[in-house]
Protein backbone atom coordinates (compact mmCIF):
# COMPACT_ATOMS: atom_id res chain seq x y z
CA UNK A 1 0.00 0.00 0.00
CA UNK A 2 2.84 2.33 0.95
CA UNK A 3 4.52 1.52 -2.36
CA UNK A 4 1.32 2.34 -4.23
CA UNK A 5 1.19 5.84 -2.67
CA UNK A 6 4.89 6.34 -3.34
CA UNK A 7 4.50 5.55 -7.05
CA UNK A 8 1.29 7.54 -7.45
CA UNK A 9 3.01 10.53 -5.77
CA UNK A 10 6.02 10.16 -8.07
CA UNK A 11 3.72 9.99 -11.12
CA UNK A 12 1.87 13.12 -9.99
CA UNK A 13 5.11 15.02 -9.34
CA UNK A 14 6.53 14.01 -12.73
CA UNK A 15 3.30 15.03 -14.44
CA UNK A 16 3.16 18.43 -12.70
CA UNK A 17 6.85 19.02 -13.47
CA UNK A 18 6.31 18.16 -17.16
CA UNK A 19 3.31 20.48 -17.33
CA UNK A 20 5.35 23.24 -15.69
CA UNK A 21 8.17 22.82 -18.21
CA UNK A 22 5.61 22.89 -21.05
CA UNK A 23 4.18 26.22 -19.79
CA UNK A 24 7.67 27.64 -19.34
CA UNK A 25 8.48 26.65 -22.91
CA UNK A 26 5.31 28.38 -24.15
CA UNK A 27 6.11 31.52 -22.17
CA UNK A 28 9.55 31.68 -23.82
CA UNK A 29 8.09 30.89 -27.24
CA UNK A 30 5.71 33.81 -27.59
CA UNK A 31 8.23 36.64 -27.25
CA UNK A 32 9.14 39.54 -29.52
CA UNK A 33 11.26 38.25 -32.43
CA UNK A 34 14.83 39.53 -32.79
CA UNK A 35 14.19 40.20 -36.47
CA UNK A 36 10.70 40.02 -38.02
CA UNK A 37 12.05 39.27 -41.50
CA UNK A 38 13.90 36.15 -40.38
CA UNK A 39 10.85 34.90 -38.48
CA UNK A 40 8.72 35.58 -41.55
CA UNK A 41 11.06 33.44 -43.65
CA UNK A 42 10.88 30.66 -41.03
CA UNK A 43 7.08 30.96 -41.01
CA UNK A 44 6.77 30.48 -44.78
CA UNK A 45 9.29 27.61 -44.70
CA UNK A 46 7.21 25.88 -42.00
CA UNK A 47 3.94 26.69 -43.75
CA UNK A 48 5.21 24.91 -46.84
CA UNK A 49 6.84 22.06 -44.98
CA UNK A 50 4.14 21.30 -42.41
CA UNK A 51 0.99 22.58 -44.12
CA UNK A 52 1.19 22.51 -47.91
CA UNK A 53 3.13 19.21 -47.87
CA UNK A 54 0.24 17.61 -45.96
CA UNK A 55 -2.31 18.37 -48.70
CA UNK A 56 -1.66 15.11 -50.56
CA UNK A 57 -2.27 12.73 -47.67
CA UNK A 58 -5.28 14.75 -46.45
CA UNK A 59 -6.81 14.69 -49.95
CA UNK A 60 -6.38 10.93 -50.46
CA UNK A 61 -7.66 10.01 -46.99
CA UNK A 62 -10.63 12.40 -47.18
CA UNK A 63 -11.88 11.12 -50.55
CA UNK A 64 -11.68 7.46 -49.57
CA UNK A 65 -13.05 7.88 -46.04
CA UNK A 66 -15.91 10.00 -47.45
CA UNK A 67 -16.73 7.17 -49.86
CA UNK A 68 -16.51 4.47 -47.16
CA UNK A 69 -18.66 6.46 -44.71
CA UNK A 70 -21.30 6.80 -47.43
CA UNK A 71 -21.30 3.06 -48.21
CA UNK A 72 -21.44 2.10 -44.51
CA UNK A 73 -24.18 4.62 -43.67
CA UNK A 74 -26.23 3.46 -46.63
CA UNK A 75 -25.73 -0.15 -45.53
CA UNK A 76 -26.92 0.64 -41.99
CA UNK A 77 -29.90 2.75 -43.08
CA UNK A 78 -31.45 0.17 -45.40
CA UNK A 79 -35.05 0.75 -44.40
CA UNK A 80 -38.02 1.53 -46.64
CA UNK A 81 -39.14 4.20 -44.15
CA UNK A 82 -35.86 6.14 -44.37
CA UNK A 83 -35.40 8.09 -47.59
CA UNK A 84 -32.04 7.67 -49.39
CA UNK A 85 -31.16 11.35 -49.07
CA UNK A 86 -30.85 10.91 -45.28
CA UNK A 87 -27.68 8.94 -45.99
CA UNK A 88 -26.09 12.08 -47.49
CA UNK A 89 -27.23 14.15 -44.52
CA UNK A 90 -25.59 11.67 -42.11
CA UNK A 91 -22.42 11.58 -44.21
CA UNK A 92 -22.25 15.38 -44.27
CA UNK A 93 -22.63 15.65 -40.50
CA UNK A 94 -20.08 12.87 -39.85
CA UNK A 95 -17.52 14.54 -42.09
CA UNK A 96 -18.03 18.10 -40.84
CA UNK A 97 -18.42 17.33 -37.15
CA UNK A 98 -15.92 14.59 -36.60
CA UNK A 99 -13.99 13.10 -39.49
CA UNK A 100 -12.40 16.21 -40.94
CA UNK A 101 -11.55 18.15 -37.76
CA UNK A 102 -10.69 15.27 -35.45
CA UNK A 103 -9.56 12.29 -37.51
CA UNK A 104 -7.57 14.39 -39.97
CA UNK A 105 -5.96 16.20 -37.01
CA UNK A 106 -5.02 12.81 -35.53
CA UNK A 107 -3.43 11.86 -38.84
CA UNK A 108 -1.58 15.18 -38.86
CA UNK A 109 -0.43 14.53 -35.28
CA UNK A 110 1.37 11.51 -36.71
CA UNK A 111 2.79 13.20 -39.79
CA UNK A 112 3.50 16.73 -38.57
CA UNK A 113 4.06 15.87 -34.91
CA UNK A 114 6.77 13.28 -35.55
CA UNK A 115 8.38 15.64 -38.08
CA UNK A 116 8.55 18.54 -35.59
CA UNK A 117 9.77 16.39 -32.70
CA UNK A 118 12.46 14.62 -34.71
CA UNK A 119 13.67 17.84 -36.39
CA UNK A 120 13.98 19.74 -33.10
CA UNK A 121 15.39 16.65 -31.37
CA UNK A 122 18.11 16.30 -34.02
CA UNK A 123 18.88 20.00 -33.70
CA UNK A 124 19.19 19.57 -29.93
CA UNK A 125 21.55 16.58 -30.02
CA UNK A 126 23.71 18.15 -32.74
CA UNK A 127 24.00 21.35 -30.61
CA UNK A 128 22.27 23.54 -33.24
CA UNK A 129 19.88 24.83 -30.56
CA UNK A 130 22.86 25.69 -28.32
CA UNK A 131 24.45 27.47 -31.30
CA UNK A 132 21.33 29.65 -31.67
CA UNK A 133 21.38 30.47 -27.98
CA UNK A 134 25.08 31.43 -28.01
CA UNK A 135 24.37 33.74 -30.97
CA UNK A 136 21.79 35.56 -28.85
CA UNK A 137 18.77 34.18 -30.71
CA UNK A 138 15.83 32.95 -28.59
CA UNK A 139 15.66 29.34 -29.84
CA UNK A 140 12.19 28.75 -28.38
CA UNK A 141 10.73 31.66 -30.31
CA UNK A 142 12.69 31.17 -33.53
CA UNK A 143 12.12 27.41 -33.82
CA UNK A 144 8.68 26.92 -32.29
CA UNK A 145 6.61 30.08 -32.83
CA UNK A 146 6.67 29.98 -36.68
CA UNK A 147 5.61 26.31 -36.62
CA UNK A 148 2.71 26.96 -34.23
CA UNK A 149 1.49 30.00 -36.16
CA UNK A 150 1.87 28.25 -39.54
CA UNK A 151 -0.18 25.21 -38.54
CA UNK A 152 -2.79 27.18 -36.58
CA UNK A 153 -3.42 29.29 -39.69
CA UNK A 154 -3.15 26.52 -42.27
CA UNK A 155 -4.93 23.67 -40.48
CA UNK A 156 -8.40 25.24 -40.93
CA UNK A 157 -7.69 25.49 -44.69
CA UNK A 158 -6.64 21.83 -44.75
CA UNK A 159 -9.78 20.84 -42.88
CA UNK A 160 -12.07 22.81 -45.20
CA UNK A 161 -10.40 21.07 -48.16
CA UNK A 162 -10.84 17.76 -46.33
CA UNK A 163 -14.58 18.45 -45.78
CA UNK A 164 -15.04 19.28 -49.45
CA UNK A 165 -13.14 16.20 -50.65
CA UNK A 166 -14.89 13.95 -48.12
CA UNK A 167 -18.24 14.99 -49.57
CA UNK A 168 -16.88 14.47 -53.10
CA UNK A 169 -15.83 10.96 -52.04
CA UNK A 170 -19.35 10.32 -50.79
CA UNK A 171 -20.80 11.64 -54.06
CA UNK A 172 -18.52 9.33 -56.04
CA UNK A 173 -19.63 6.34 -53.93
CA UNK A 174 -23.25 7.26 -54.69
CA UNK A 175 -22.42 7.76 -58.37
CA UNK A 176 -20.86 4.31 -58.63
CA UNK A 177 -24.07 2.58 -57.84
CA UNK A 178 -25.31 2.87 -54.27
CA UNK A 179 -28.14 5.30 -54.85
CA UNK A 180 -29.07 8.31 -56.95
CA UNK A 181 -26.67 11.25 -56.95
CA UNK A 182 -29.70 13.51 -57.01
CA UNK A 183 -30.75 12.08 -53.61
CA UNK A 184 -27.20 12.61 -52.39
CA UNK A 185 -27.25 16.30 -53.35
CA UNK A 186 -30.71 16.75 -51.83
CA UNK A 187 -29.49 15.20 -48.58
CA UNK A 188 -26.39 17.38 -48.53
CA UNK A 189 -28.53 20.53 -48.65
CA UNK A 190 -31.05 19.33 -46.08
CA UNK A 191 -31.16 21.20 -42.74
CA UNK A 192 -27.64 22.54 -43.10
CA UNK A 193 -26.40 24.20 -39.91
CA UNK A 194 -23.50 26.59 -40.62
CA UNK A 195 -22.55 26.64 -36.95
CA UNK A 196 -21.27 23.08 -37.32
CA UNK A 197 -18.56 24.37 -39.67
CA UNK A 198 -17.59 27.08 -37.15
CA UNK A 199 -17.49 24.44 -34.41
CA UNK A 200 -15.25 22.24 -36.57
CA UNK A 201 -12.88 25.12 -37.36
CA UNK A 202 -12.60 26.16 -33.70
CA UNK A 203 -11.65 22.56 -32.85
CA UNK A 204 -9.16 22.54 -35.70
CA UNK A 205 -7.35 25.63 -34.44
CA UNK A 206 -7.06 24.16 -30.92
CA UNK A 207 -5.85 20.81 -32.30
CA UNK A 208 -3.22 22.52 -34.47
CA UNK A 209 -1.90 24.37 -31.42
CA UNK A 210 -1.76 21.14 -29.40
CA UNK A 211 -0.01 19.17 -32.18
CA UNK A 212 2.73 21.75 -32.76
CA UNK A 213 3.37 22.81 -29.15
CA UNK A 214 3.36 19.29 -27.66
CA UNK A 215 5.55 17.88 -30.44
CA UNK A 216 7.94 20.84 -30.13
CA UNK A 217 8.12 20.25 -26.37
CA UNK A 218 9.18 16.63 -26.82
CA UNK A 219 11.69 17.50 -29.53
CA UNK A 220 13.18 20.59 -27.90
CA UNK A 221 14.12 18.87 -24.64
CA UNK A 222 15.62 15.65 -25.99
CA UNK A 223 18.63 14.45 -24.03
CA UNK A 224 20.92 11.83 -25.51
CA UNK A 225 21.30 10.71 -29.11
CA UNK A 226 19.50 9.20 -32.08
CA UNK A 227 17.58 6.62 -30.03
CA UNK A 228 16.20 9.28 -27.68
CA UNK A 229 15.16 11.39 -30.69
CA UNK A 230 13.12 8.42 -31.96
CA UNK A 231 11.65 7.72 -28.53
CA UNK A 232 10.63 11.36 -28.06
CA UNK A 233 9.12 11.54 -31.58
CA UNK A 234 6.91 8.59 -30.62
CA UNK A 235 6.01 10.23 -27.29
CA UNK A 236 5.14 13.42 -29.18
CA UNK A 237 2.70 11.58 -31.46
CA UNK A 238 1.09 9.63 -28.60
CA UNK A 239 0.78 12.67 -26.30
CA UNK A 240 -0.59 15.01 -28.95
CA UNK A 241 -3.10 12.33 -30.07
CA UNK A 242 -4.31 11.85 -26.48
CA UNK A 243 -4.49 15.65 -26.03
CA UNK A 244 -6.60 15.92 -29.22
CA UNK A 245 -9.02 13.24 -28.04
CA UNK A 246 -9.43 14.86 -24.60
CA UNK A 247 -9.72 18.39 -26.08
CA UNK A 248 -12.27 17.06 -28.58
CA UNK A 249 -14.51 15.90 -25.73
CA UNK A 250 -14.10 19.14 -23.76
CA UNK A 251 -14.73 21.39 -26.78
CA UNK A 252 -17.75 19.36 -27.87
CA UNK A 253 -19.17 19.64 -24.37
CA UNK A 254 -18.60 23.42 -24.38
CA UNK A 255 -19.59 24.24 -27.96
CA UNK A 256 -22.39 21.80 -28.78
CA UNK A 257 -24.17 20.94 -25.55
Amino acid sequence: MQNYFYFSDMFLITWIRTLGRYWLMLSRTFRKPENWNEYKKAFFRDLDHLGVDSLGIVAVISIFVGAVVTIQTNYNLQDPLIPDYYVALAVRESIILEFSPTIVSLILAGKVGSNIASTLGSMRVSEQIDALEVMGVNPHAYLIMPKVVALVLFNPILIIISMFLGVIGGYLAAYFGIFSTQDFITGLQLEFNAYYVSYALIKTVVFAFLITSISAFYGFFVKGGAIEVGVNATKAVVSSSVAIIVANYVLTQILLV
Partner: peptide, 16 residues
Protein backbone atom coordinates in the same frame (compact mmCIF):
# COMPACT_ATOMS: atom_id res chain seq x y z
CA UNK B 1 26.68 40.06 -24.75
CA UNK B 2 26.07 36.99 -26.86
CA UNK B 3 26.25 38.99 -30.06
CA UNK B 4 29.86 39.65 -28.99
CA UNK B 5 30.53 35.89 -28.77
CA UNK B 6 31.38 33.31 -31.39
CA UNK B 7 31.41 29.62 -30.68
CA UNK B 8 32.67 26.59 -32.57
CA UNK B 9 30.97 23.45 -31.32
CA UNK B 10 32.48 19.99 -31.16
CA UNK B 11 30.06 18.67 -33.78
CA UNK B 12 30.13 22.00 -35.72
CA UNK B 13 26.39 22.63 -35.13
CA UNK B 14 25.88 23.99 -38.64
CA UNK B 15 22.23 24.45 -39.61
CA UNK B 16 21.46 21.52 -41.94
Amino acid sequence: LRTEMGMVFQGNALFD
